Simulated assay, not measured.
Amino acid sequence: MRLDRWLGNRPELGRQLARRLLAEGRVRVNGATTQQAEQEVFTFDRIEADERLLQDGPGGRYLMLHKPRGCVSATVDARHATVLDCLAADQRADLHLAGRLDFNTTGLLLLTNDGQWSRGLSHPRHKQTKRYRVTTAEVIPPQLVTAFAEGLYFAYEDLTTQPAQLELLDEHSAYLTLVEGRYHQVKRMFGRFGIEVIALHRDRIGALPLDPALAEGAYRSLTAAEVAVLRPAD
Score class of each variant (00 low, 15 high):
residue 98 A to E: 13
residue 121 L to F: 11
residue 113 N to V: 05
residue 119 R to S: 09
residue 94 D to Y: 07
residue 94 D to Q: 06
residue 114 D to T: 14
residue 107 G to P: 08
residue 51 E to N: 06
residue 130 K to E: 07
residue 92 R to K: 14
residue 99 G to P: 14
residue 43 T to I: 05
residue 36 Q to S: 07
residue 38 E to M: 05
residue 123 H to Y: 14
residue 110 L to K: 10
residue 131 R to F: 07
residue 53 L to S: 05
residue 132 Y to C: 02
residue 48 E to D: 03
residue 108 L to F: 04
residue 135 T to H: 14
residue 73 S to A: 04
residue 93 A to G: 06
residue 88 A to H: 14
residue 102 D to S: 03
residue 122 S to F: 06
residue 97 L to G: 08
residue 113 N to Q: 05
residue 86 C to W: 04
residue 88 A to I: 04
residue 76 V to E: 11
residue 106 T to A: 01
residue 42 F to G: 01
residue 72 V to I: 07
residue 127 K to E: 15
residue 89 A to Y: 13
residue 34 T to M: 03
residue 62 Y to Q: 15
residue 130 K to R: 14
residue 134 V to P: 02
residue 81 A to D: 05
residue 65 L to W: 05
residue 125 R to K: 14
residue 96 H to F: 15
residue 39 Q to E: 01
residue 89 A to P: 07
residue 34 T to Q: 09
residue 110 L to R: 11
residue 79 R to H: 14
residue 67 K to R: 04
residue 131 R to Q: 13
residue 137 A to V: 03
residue 53 L to H: 07
residue 133 R to S: 06
residue 83 V to D: 13
residue 62 Y to G: 02
residue 107 G to L: 08
residue 52 R to Y: 01
residue 35 Q to P: 05
residue 112 T to Q: 15
residue 59 G to Q: 03
residue 40 E to Y: 04
residue 122 S to P: 10
residue 94 D to C: 00
residue 94 D to V: 09
residue 84 L to P: 00
